[in-house]
């Protein structure tokens, strides 16, 4: 289990995260949602210690994360940035092999077990047989799946994802999120992901953390936490939330405030 307690962070003199506390249960998919600039991505980066943390602490199964070395941490915690970039000429096979870095010795390489894991990771994301292809020559959806395969190949129990469906069309958004959901359901991973789309959150997440202006407004199981009241408090938006065929749907109302923003 991963837990943040009283986490605060700032970019230079600008504070962006204020005393944020959250506990993420094992084997569940938690979505971080909120308006642009509310600190969702910074929260993930603060957990990874990628931004200067001015207060608070993150623990992994009770152990302070800062006391765990990078290589040991990589075996337990993986992070997928918002804009994953791959240099030209790097193949899918090389990308996936790099993910096992934390398990290799200085001059060693992957074991037979590692290679089986890489094949399995490519199979899970539906890219088996493409290991020799350059990552930058894959389609947008395939590229995103390639980076998810990298996360799988890293074989960490906890996965942090920063907007994994950014820039993808609706089909790929749902396909990718199904894959992310499978990570928790079939592979026992704990996934914490930043999402912009509340309907994707309602369709796939188990838990949600709703943020605004660097603070958590509401957190808990999706069905109980995402309500018209919390959506209004977080997004300044009137929305209807209703159930259809057993699934929750969030539909914003086109009121005068929305039209003003759109204009």
């Amino acid at each position: 289990m991963i837990e943040a307690r009283g986490l605060s962070a700032a970019y230079g003199d600008t504070p962006v995260l204020f005393d944020v506390s959250a506990r993420f249960s094992a084997g569940r998919l938690t979505a971080l949602v909120g308006p642009n600039g509310c600190g969702k991505s910074t929260f993930l980066k603060a957990i990874m210690n990628f931004v200067p943390v001015s207060g608070g602490a993150v623990t992994l199964d009770g152990e302070p994360i800062l006391k765990i070395g990078r290589r040991k941490l990589a075996r337990r915690l993986a992070y997928l940035p918002q804009e994953s970039q791959c240099p030209d000429y790097m193949t899918l096979g090389e990308l996936v092999e790099l993910a096992g870095y934390s398990r290799y010795s200085l001059f060693g390489g992957p074991t037979e077990g590692d290679r089986e894991l890489f094949q399995k990771a490519l199979g899970v994301v539906g890219l088996e047989g493409l290991a020799h292809r350059q990552v930058n020559r894959l389609s947008g959806g395939q590229r995103q799946r390639a980076f998810i395969a990298m996360i799988l190949a890293q074989d960490a129990g906890i996965v942090l994802m920063d907007e994994p469906v950014n820039h993808l069309d609706m089909t790929y958004q749902y396909a990718t999120m199904s894959l992310v959901k499978d990570l928790t359901r079939d592979h026992g991973k704990t996934v914490i992901t930043v999402l912009h789309d509340l309907n994707l959150t309602l369709a796939f997440a188990d838990d949600v953390v709703m943020m605004r202006e660097g603070r958590i407004v509401a957190a808990g199981p999706v069905r109980e936490t995402v309500t018209p009241e919390t959506v209004g408090a977080v997004f300044d938006l009137d929305a209807d939330i209703f159930e259809r065929d057993g699934r929750l749907v969030c539909l914003p109302r086109m009121d005068a405030r929305c039209r003003t923003l759109a204009a």
Binding site: A74, Y79, P81, L98, Q154
Partner: peptide, 8 residues
């Protein structure tokens, strides 16, 4: 960030 995540 990607490198640090992988253990570098």
């Amino acid at each position: 960030e990607q490198a640090a995540s992988a253990g570098v």
